[in-house]
Deep mutational scan, measured.
Amino acid sequence: MSIQHFRVALIPFFAAFCLPVFAHPETLVKVKDAEDQLGARVGYIELDLNSGKILESFRPEERFPMMSTFKVLLCGAVLSRVDAGQEQLGRRIHYSQNDLVEYSPVTEKHLTDGMTVRELCSAAITMSDNTAANLLLTTIGGPKELTAFLHNMGDHVTRLDRWEPELNEAIPNDERDTTMPAAMATTLRKLLTGELLTLASRQQLIDWMEADKVAGPLLRSALPAGWFIADKSGAGERGSRGIIAALGPDGKPSRIVVIYTTGSQATMDERNRQIAEIGASLIKHW
């Protein structure tokens, strides 16, 4: 067993022997301040990774656009098919120029040779490549099948209805392509620590998230040296922004954090800054 596999296998073990965790309302004060600064709703939840206990939450059962955070769930569904012998990570998928959609920095470079399922998941999570996500959605049967996968996990809230990039439209009061912070946090925890996926697939999923290259201005910008984070960000229309993450000190994750916002007129930089400040408060009061 590799060191990384050992780390993920012992996530519940280490967490069980940690000192009790206590909620700190100071972080919620910052979440509410972010709402004021952005002029928009902000949803927040913080779960203990081992027990699933909610440590703090704000608007945990209000719907927010998922945006690209759905790509972690998508690759979880792909990995479940791999575990069941219905898919192979090494299978190569070929596609054409007509398949390319807006923001496809990886797939646009491989029109000639195609990409493997493993490479597509890596591109979808680490670079948020939209064509990679659409190609992977095709392998599982489309958005409705991802929703069905989530329902089978016990998540009857999260739903995907459309493809990239239309799913980022974020129309107010439109339930399409949305989740709730509580539902997303619980589902992410199941994917990373539950028995739904094999140990190898859980490790692969967290490795992809740990290698995320496009979430630097968010929670990662607030992390002290030595902290662990595996995350996936999302951005959408109407001032929408979000991030889902597993993080913790001492090089291992111990909490799940989900943050979503929508309806702001603020710039992307300002949305990023507010999420980073929430992260800084979380870490300060850990």
Score class of each variant (00 low, 15 high):
25 P>G: 08
27 T>H: 06
29 V>K: 15
32 K>R: 15
33 D>F: 09
34 A>S: 09
35 E>V: 04
44 Y>N: 00
45 I>G: 04
47 L>S: 06
47 L>H: 02
48 D>R: 03
50 N>I: 12
51 S>N: 14
55 L>R: 09
59 R>H: 09
65 P>T: 03
66 M>E: 02
69 T>V: 03
70 F>C: 08
72 V>F: 03
77 A>G: 08
79 L>R: 00
81 R>K: 12
84 A>E: 10
85 G>T: 07
86 Q>C: 13
91 R>S: 07
93 I>C: 04
95 Y>L: 08
98 N>Y: 15
99 D>N: 09
103 Y>F: 09
104 S>K: 01
107 T>I: 06
109 K>C: 08
111 L>G: 07
113 D>N: 12
113 D>T: 13
119 E>N: 09
119 E>T: 05
120 L>A: 05
121 C>V: 02
123 A>R: 01
127 M>F: 10
127 M>K: 09
127 M>E: 12
128 S>M: 00
131 T>S: 14
133 A>N: 02
135 L>Y: 00
144 K>F: 11
147 T>H: 07
147 T>P: 04
151 H>S: 13
152 N>M: 15
155 D>G: 01
155 D>E: 06
157 V>Y: 14
157 V>M: 11
158 T>Y: 02
158 T>N: 02
159 R>Q: 10
159 R>A: 06
160 L>R: 00
167 L>H: 02
170 A>E: 07
170 A>N: 09
178 T>G: 02
178 T>L: 01
179 T>Y: 04
180 M>V: 13
180 M>H: 13
184 M>G: 01
184 M>K: 00
185 A>C: 07
189 R>K: 15
190 K>I: 15
194 G>H: 11
198 T>Y: 07
202 R>F: 05
202 R>M: 08
203 Q>R: 10
204 Q>L: 12
205 L>Y: 01
214 V>R: 06
214 V>Y: 06
215 A>M: 04
218 L>W: 02
221 S>P: 08
223 L>G: 03
223 L>R: 05
231 D>T: 05
233 S>D: 00
233 S>M: 02
234 G>K: 00
246 A>I: 14
246 A>E: 05
246 A>P: 02
251 G>C: 09
254 S>P: 08
255 R>T: 04
255 R>G: 03
263 G>R: 07
267 T>S: 14
269 D>S: 12
275 I>S: 02
276 A>H: 12
278 I>M: 09
283 I>G: 03
285 H>T: 12
